[in-house]
Design a protein around this nucleic acid. Structure first.
Ligand code: SF4
Ligand code: SF4
Lengths: 137, 137
DNA sequence: TTTAAATACTACTAAAAGGTAGAATTAAAC
DNA sequence: GTTTAATTCTACCTTTTAGTAGTATTTAAA
């Protein structure tokens, strides 16, 4: 019941870039240092974020990364989907195939409400909403 | 954001044993077949359930497994804890160390409510509550 | 008392996730 | 034009999780 490492990193990276408006571009080097993410692992994630069109990269000297669209247009759910976290909304909590509400597992009835709440939260929260001073990064 | 395989199996096994009252003991062989869990993997989980005192085992011919206490006294949270799922309630969703409400990550404020809802649900749901006819197993 | 059917133990293999290394490519600065 | 600082690509290594194999132990039935 936790987000996996890669997804956590991805959210933190996007969140940082989205909410630090003092610069145009951020290099992998500085992101790795500031966010304490292994450099080589971060660059791997960055290219995935670029391919997913969350991030726009400028190559070559003086290059770096920036958001490809406004922070308000990227929801946490978008990111989770990209990293296969919430993959199949219909997947059973107990892993017994898929859930179509007619073929319930034992935990179904208790799970639907919290599940919906999480879903809504992730859908309604954008990178913009993660702003705020004093937050750890 | 899903329970890992081993935990899913554990809940399904416990749930099945708890709610099928037609027998005293269930053998690993029949549990594996009925629940479609690899036999060798299941026996491994069973010994962990025995050590965690959820299950009582009777060895030797005609032996098998049964609950070590009433189904109403084993919550899903108990099981999750045993399998290190909910380990540290205080662990940050974004993996930035621990959360003490004074040292928040960007998702904190959105996360607290759903988090509490899930927690309560897992704590208040016991093996007994997983009963019900027509549920897939 | 032997045999059969069950759990328990030890050790290994396979797959997925997390992470690292090094070279190739790009483009601005010099 | 060369150098330098950046991203990208390919390939590998490490750790964790999932799953398998074989044997030892236990105990009731035959
Ligand atoms: S609980 Fe219901 S909804 Fe959730 S997974 Fe199991 S079956 Fe599907
Ligand atoms: S979100 Fe807040 S509570 Fe949840 S983990 Fe991050 S810091 Fe802790």
């Amino acid at each position: 019941m936790q987000l996996n490492n890669t997804t956590q990193y991805a959210i933190r990276i996007l969140s940082y870039i989205a909410n630090k408006h003092d610069k145009q571009l951020y290099s992998a080097k500085e992101l790795a240092e500031i966010l304490s993410i292994p450099y080589k692992f971060l660059t791997k994630i960055m290219t995935e974020l670029v391919k997913a069109d969350f991030i726009l990269s400028i190559r070559g000297r003086e290059g770096g990364y920036k958001l490809s669209r406004p922070a308000s247009e990227i929801s946490i759910m978008d990111v989770l989907n990209q990293f296969n976290e919430f993959v199949e909304q219909k997947q059973c909590l107990l892993g017994i195939g898929m859930c179509d509400n007619n073929n319930k597992c034992g935990l179904h009835d208790q799970w639907v409400k919290p599940k919906k709440m999480i879903k809504d939260m992730f859908e309604n929260t954008t990178l913009e909403n993660l702003d705020g001073n004093g937050y750890k990064i």
